[in-house]
Amino acid sequence: MKLAVFCSANNGIVAEFAEATTELGRWMATEGHTLVYGGCNSGLMECIGKAVHDGGGMTIGVLPTMVERGGRKSDFVDVEIPCDNLSDRKDLMLAQCDATIALPGGIGTLDEIFTVAASHLIGYHQKPVILYNINGFWDPLIALLENLEQRGMLRGHYTDDIRVANSLEELKKILL
């Protein structure tokens, strides 16, 4: 499969997130899955790219020109897909993948999650949108989604569009 991974490109990420990201990347490479990601050379992006690449897997980096001009392209990108901006990046990543996984991240990751989940809700695609809830990172977001659901702000259940995996084993089950 081609798995799009959304995650933080900030440095200084706590070790537990980096360790779980490396474990995911190694598993992806071992299973022959291709990584589709933002292609940056920092944070969890660099961590997942390195783990997949070092494990012999294929990495596809979707890089906005601003990221490349800033010298932030990872050395672990095997195939580069250039794009103009972050909106293009999301569209290209979604077009390239079979499923999406959100690791810990910030505003950019939230934007990616909700863009892909909203397009799933409307019916543009049937690709899984998975929050990899490493050590409860996504618990506040899950609580927000549950609150929105309880208040009638969502069509159906949020889990119709966003799945949650609390471990790599749960993530594997959702994907398989």
Rank of each mutant, 00 (worst) to 15 (best):
I48K: 00
K50G: 01
A51D: 00
V52S: 02
V52C: 01
H53M: 01
H53P: 03
H53Y: 14
G55K: 03
G55Y: 02
G56C: 03
G56S: 03
G56W: 00
G57R: 08
T59W: 07
T59C: 08
I60Y: 05
I60R: 00
V62F: 10
L63G: 04
P64F: 06
P64G: 02
T65Y: 14
T65K: 13
T65P: 07
M66F: 15
V67K: 11
V67Y: 14
V67E: 11
E68C: 05
E68A: 10
E68Y: 05
G70R: 14
G70A: 14
G70P: 04
G71E: 12
R72G: 11
R72D: 12
K73R: 14
K73N: 09
K73A: 14
S74M: 04
S74H: 05
S74Q: 08
D75R: 15
F76A: 07
F76E: 06
V77H: 00
V77Q: 07
E80R: 11
E80P: 03
E80S: 13
I81E: 12
I81N: 02
P82Q: 03
C83L: 06
C83K: 03
D84P: 00
D84T: 12
N85D: 15
N85G: 04
L86W: 10
L86N: 06
L86A: 10
S87Q: 15
D88E: 14
D88I: 01
R89I: 12
R89Y: 11
R89F: 06
K90Y: 07
D91Y: 09
L92G: 04
L92K: 15
L94I: 11
A95M: 06
A95L: 02
A95G: 08
Q96L: 05
Q96N: 13
Q96E: 15
Q96S: 13
C97D: 09
C97T: 15
C97F: 04
C97W: 08
C97N: 09
D98Y: 00
D98H: 11
